[in-house]
Nucleic acid binder design. Structure first.
Lengths: 113, 113
DNA sequence: CGAAGTGTAAGATATTCATCGAACACTCGG
DNA sequence: CCGAGTGTTCGATGAATATCTTACACTTCG
């Protein structure tokens, strides 16, 4: 087994859902949470694969944070990838938009909480 | 005070919110519920002011039902009006669409739960 | 190797909230 | 006026879930 150049750790691979198989109710429930909404918004303002999980400014411990990312992965809105010791994120904009047209736009475009 | 011809009962007037003053998070939370989602969908398939609260096919008692309508009113998605002994409903399509573009369409157009 | 940093997993706790039952207010029709 | 029907409010109950603490696995760096 060759050495891997940072980017394919042998940790438990994060489980991602395909947005196409996610129900509207599941997607709404995932996104109707203040912490997760903030995560999505912060992530939207960043370049893909540049934000590690711990780099978000949310008022919860890392265990809860891990849970929230799990939920966002579960609806196919966030994709994760191991990069060295860190797990970096990106929004699956196209796939999510294809399944739930306008929803992501609504989350980001919102002027208030 | 003259007699009122059915349509303006002197019951406690239902409190409606203006969608313009509702946050995205509140709207999402209101709609991310199986019962309320079904209410909205059934209501969308009916003519305005033709459905009384009790006429919906949802698996909850009338107390819970009253609560759900209260939540939907609270985000300005449903408007109510007293008509005789019954309280009839309609969707505030335009106002809601103006505040949350695409959301209502997403709720109704959904092919699954 | 050892220490620090990052994220996950499991168990316990707490809070939110959906639901129900009962009591109440109102409307309509005998 | 009385009874049936409709919807709301209140209090309590139960389930879902957000959170924390602790423990663990892995990575990187010294």
């Amino acid at each position: 087994m060759p050495n891997q150049p940072a980017g394919s750790g042998h940790r438990a691979a994060p489980v991602h859902a395909d947005p196409a198989e996610v129900s509207v109710l599941e997607a709404l429930s995932a996104v109707a949470d203040p912490v997760r909404l903030q995560l999505v918004r912060e992530l939207a303002d960043s370049e893909d694969w540049t934000r590690s999980c711990g780099s978000f400014d949310v008022p919860v411990g890392k265990a809860a944070l891990s849970h929230h990312f799990s939920v966002l992965r579960g609806v196919g809105l966030v994709e994760q990838r191991d990069m060295g010791a860190k797990r970096v994120n990106r929004l699956r904009r196209e796939e999510f938009e294809a399944r739930f047209p306008g929803l992501l736009h609504l989350l980001l475009r919102a002027d208030d909480a």
